[in-house]
Amino acid sequence: MALTKTEVEKIAHLARLHVSDIEAEEVARGVSDILALIDKMQSVDTDNVEPLAHPFDAAQKLRPDVVTESDRRDELQQLAPQSQDGLFLVPKVIE
């Protein structure tokens, strides 16, 4: 199945990727090729097959409700592109 330019733009927006008009067509082609590979699945009848999310059937482990982490703010904010007064800064969010 081939993707349209509009679909590419919609998906790119959901994924917060910038796709220029020129790129959109190329991306559409690349993605469509892969979808063709993927679409081979559709030939198989899987009506009575349960989806498998994990290779092994195991149950979630639980952690005791204990605080194990201490404040590492100053060290961790060294990694941030921009911070001030202990806050991470981003361009103004308009609600």
């Binding site: 993707l3 679909e7 590419v8 998906i11 790119a12 959901l14 994924a15 917060r16 990727l17 910038h18 796709v19 991306v27 690349g30 993605v31 892969i34 979808l35 993927i38």
Partner: peptide
């Protein structure tokens, strides 16, 4: 994200988002 990721990564993100 577009400047930071390469083409193959972006392609797979697109495929996954679409799916």
């Amino acid at each position: 994200r577009s400047e930071g990721f390469g083409e193959e990564v972006k392609r797979r993100i697109m495929i996954g988002t679409y799916a």
